[in-house]
Design a binder for these strands. Sequence first.
DNA 1: AGACTGACGGTCT
DNA 2: GAGACCGCCAGTC
Length: 110
Amino acid sequence: MSTYDRIYQIVRQIPPGRVATYGQIATLADLPGQARLVGYALYRVDLANSDVPWHRVINAKGCVSHSPQRRGTDYHQQALLEAEGIEFDESGKLNLKQYLWRSPPTSTSV
DNA sequence: AGACTGACGGTCT
DNA sequence: GAGACCGCCAGTC
């Protein structure tokens, strides 16, 4: 169990049709302020070899983060989100207030 | 063992 | 409201 694995656990809790921000996941993973680690972790996630819905994770700007390292998977991410009913505006962004995943109050126990 | 890379968030101007 | 700067950790070579 590594720090990244814990991040994957949080991401796997994101329900379909909802999205979460890196910072939010970082906080849920007990890593407040370390949104970077979340992004780094997702970068290592295997696109088709993991149960982690990495595509439901976006940045605080409410849009998919693009990078040449992703080889176009960034666009694929947006496509997957649209397939779940999420709509993007002409700016490539989405309504966080509408699609942002609200973490459960008490997942495991007290 | 040291250095480089890599999907961001928050705050200030 | 938008743009710029700073700080973080883990894995790999």
